Simulated scan of single mutants.
Amino acid sequence: MRVYIGCGGYSNEDWAAPNLIYEGVRKDDFLATYAQHFDAVELNSSFYAIPGLKAFEGMARKSGGQVRFAVKLNKAFTHERTPTEADFDRMLQSPEPLREAGVMGPYLAQFPYSFHRTADNRKYLGLLTERFAGHELAVELRHASWDKPEVREGMAEYGVIWVSPDYPPVGGMPEPQVHVTGDVGYLRLHGRNKGSWWEGQSAAERHDYLYNRAEMDEWAEKIALVNDDLSELYVFFENTTKGHALKNIPMLREALNARGVPVRAPDPRDFGDGRLL
């Protein structure tokens, strides 16, 4: 199993704080610097506006072909659920430079908690699956009504990746387990900030959580159990607030390697100046 580990987004300005990876780095160089530390990233900007071809060309170039990109579907597909034909065309075609560079990961459909398992929502999810047929599509379903074996069996039948989550223990959401519905796995670690998950005013507040070593060991154990079942696993840390993810990723790498799951970190020799902050 090849494990790709990265963060939810790379343009985190609070990472410019002292002793974090963007200290003294120009914003235009954030992605190039990110690529020196991580081999995957979840693209958040596409949720708000679908980038064009030139933007994706720039991402492939600045990351030096060293980073796999999971591209989040625009909110028109998951929150508004009224995508137009133009939205489908742009979402499917614009990331072509990533495919040409061999760094395109799965699309991510991140549905809100309000997206319950109803007949209409099941029908909509089926339609979305059909439109993205031929592409890897990972689906995060936050309401517990979807957390059933029969749902994952259906996703496996249609080649859809179940997003395994780690949420705060607030109830009403899927359990923190690694589930396999195909050859590729996808794990999103949101942190366990129970106090601000519902009441937080921003994503930064909700994801303000630093995992401890025991919690990283716990996830390494769960990942090791599916080592023989997957060819690739994407692990994304969403707790980017205050650089928490930057501290947790080395913990998880160490825990996985200790359990016989090899994880590669970027080699500084692959980059021009060889500098790792």
Results as ranks from 00 to 15, higher is better:
Val41Thr: 15
Ala265Tyr: 03
Val226Leu: 07
Met155Ser: 02
Glu175Gln: 13
Phe56Leu: 05
Asp166Pro: 14
Gly159Glu: 08
Leu125Tyr: 14
Ala214Ile: 01
Asp166Gln: 10
Asn227Thr: 08
Ser45Pro: 06
Ser145Tyr: 11
Arg275Ala: 10
Ala220Asn: 02
Asn121Ile: 07
Lys222Ala: 02
His37Ser: 10
Pro149Gly: 12
Asn248Cys: 10
Glu221Pro: 03
Pro149Phe: 15
Lys54Glu: 15
Leu128Ile: 09
His190Asp: 03
Ala16Cys: 09
Asp147Tyr: 07
Gly243Ala: 09
Val41Ser: 08
Cys7Val: 11
Asp229Tyr: 11
Trp197Pro: 13
Asp229Leu: 12
Arg188Glu: 02
Gln110Gly: 09
Lys62Asn: 14
Ser164Gly: 05
Pro95Arg: 04
Gln36His: 12
Asp87Trp: 08
Pro112Ser: 10
Arg253Trp: 15
Tyr113Phe: 15
Gly243Gln: 06
Asp14Val: 03
Lys247Ile: 01
Glu23Arg: 07
Asn212Lys: 04
Phe111Val: 05
His135Tyr: 15
Phe115Met: 04
Phe30Cys: 01
Thr33Trp: 06
Met173Asp: 00
Asp270Thr: 01
Pro165Tyr: 03
Lys242Phe: 15
Ser11Pro: 02
Gly182His: 05
Met173Gln: 09
Val263Ser: 07
Arg68Ser: 09
Phe69Gln: 02
Phe69Lys: 08
Ile50Pro: 07
Asp270Met: 10
Tyr4Arg: 14
Pro18His: 02
Leu277Val: 02
His37Asn: 13
Asp89Ile: 00
Glu13Asn: 12
Ile50Gly: 01
Val67Leu: 05
Leu128Met: 12
Leu108Gly: 08
Ala119Phe: 14
Pro149His: 11
Asn227Ser: 15
Leu230Ile: 06
Tyr34Glu: 00
Gly52Pro: 11
Ala16Trp: 01
Pro149Cys: 13
Glu150Leu: 03
Asp147Arg: 07
His79Lys: 14
Gly6Gln: 07
Val103Thr: 09
Asn239Lys: 07
Gly64Val: 05
His190Glu: 02
Tyr113Thr: 01
Pro83Asn: 04
Val67Ala: 01
Phe30Trp: 14
His143Gln: 05
Arg259Met: 11
Ala156Val: 02
Leu128Thr: 01
Asp183Val: 05
Pro18Lys: 14
Glu100Asn: 10
Tyr209His: 13
Tyr113Glu: 13
Phe111Arg: 03
Pro97Asp: 06
Tyr167Ser: 05
Phe56Pro: 11
Asn193Trp: 14
Gly200Gln: 05
Glu140Tyr: 13
Gly134Ser: 03
Tyr48Trp: 11
Lys123Thr: 10
Ala109Val: 04
Gly159Leu: 10
Phe38Asp: 00
Ser231Gln: 14
Val3Gln: 03
Gly195Arg: 12
Leu43Gly: 06
Asp87Ser: 07
Phe47Leu: 04
Asp166Tyr: 14
Pro165Gly: 08
Glu96Val: 02
Val184Asn: 07
Val263Cys: 15
Asn248Lys: 06
Phe237Glu: 05
Tyr209Asn: 00
Pro18Gly: 04
Gln36Ala: 13
Pro149Ile: 01
Val178Tyr: 08
